[in-house]
């Protein structure tokens, strides 16, 4: 899979279209980067490891998990003054200095992980990351729950991108949670469950011709030829709608005689190679 810089965010897109590059300093290295790219992506290109849970190249950056914090200094600032920013949504600019793993940065990530550990004590992803930062046990009161949602809202953004906007964050403050308020909007595509960094979204995929997610059960459509699951009827209808909205012809009438396709052995066919007729020009 080829790596590209995300340009979904409008400012980033506008700035990157000018093909401008800027020079920044990351961990003491002077590097060229496209103007408007986010620090996280520039660091990723350089194989500098910044932990991040809520960033996805295809989705709008959101800055929810706070793990990707880095220290920055803009040109002209006093030498002792640095600021903490979330690198997943901070665009680079000329002369920017970045520290991705300084003491201050690590201390902040520790606090974030300490808090997350109290929120989702059962999550392996958070547990492993916390141990990496030397947090064995949380210093706060643990929630008594099996839930592993860290409120990064990747599912909400993914569902928006898919065009359903079925998932929303509900309530406020410490009681905030994600759910599907309108079950009819969900098409059972499982994108949210696959993207969730802590596997917090429960689903039963394709059990006895049924699929269950967000407490809604779906039927499944399978490919006649290969027997592979194509998706739920609601999902196929959504893609058909998207395609026809964009002026594409829907290939209902194009179904080829796939059931008759069968495999032949190489040797019996090789004999025929010389006998292929030239088509009339």
């Amino acid at each position: 899979m080829r790596k590209v810089r995300p340009t979904l965010d409008d400012t980033a897109r506008m700035m990157s279209e000018t093909n401008e590059t800027v020079t920044i300093t990351i961990d003491g290295r002077d590097v060229e980067a496209p103007a408007g790219a986010y620090i996280l992506d520039v660091a990723g290109e350089l194989d500098i490891d910044i932990p991040s849970l809520c960033a996805h190249p295809g989705l709008e950056p959101f800055g929810a998990c706070r793990l990707c914090v880095v220290e920055i200094q803009k040109p002209g600032w006093d030498d002792w003054y640095r600021q903490l920013v979330t690198s997943c949504l901070y665009p680079v600019a000329d002369g920017l200095k970045v520290w991705t793993n300084s003491e201050e940065v690590r201390r902040n990530r520790e606090v974030v992980l300490d808090l997350q550990l109290a929120r989702v004590p059962k999550s392996d992803v958070i547990g492993d990351l916390a141990r990496e930062y030397g947090v064995e046990r949380t210093s706060y009161a643990e929630r008594d729950t099996d839930d592993t949602c860290i409120m990064c809202a990747i599912c909400v953004r993914a569902c928006d991108a898919v065009g359903r906007s079925a998932i929303a964050t509900l309530s406020r403050g410490p009681d905030k949670y994600v759910d599907v308020p309108d079950k009819d909007a969900c098409i059972g595509c499982l994108v949210c469950a696959h993207l969730c960094p802590t596997d917090a979204i429960a689903f039963v995929a394709d059990d006895n011709g049924k699929r269950t997610i967000w407490d809604k059960q779906f039927d499944l459509v399978t490919d006649e030829r290969t027997g592979e699951v194509l998706g739920t009827p609601e999902y196929l209808e959504h893609v058909r709608q998207r395609a026809t909205d964009r002026g594409l012809r829907w290939p209902d009438e194009m179904k080829h005689e796939s059931a008759k396709v069968k495999r032949r052995t190489y040797s019996s066919k090789l004999a025929r190679v010389g006998r292929i007729e030239e088509p009339a020009e």
């Binding site: 899979m1 190249p57 595509c189 194509l230 998706g231």
Partner: peptide
């Protein structure tokens, strides 16, 4: 046309390709 790391694995393209 190449698949890039922006893919969110929705599978729309699989259904849409004639």
């Amino acid at each position: 046309i190449e698949v890039t790391d922006r893919c969110i694995e929705c599978g729309f393209c699989v259904v849409a390709c004639p």
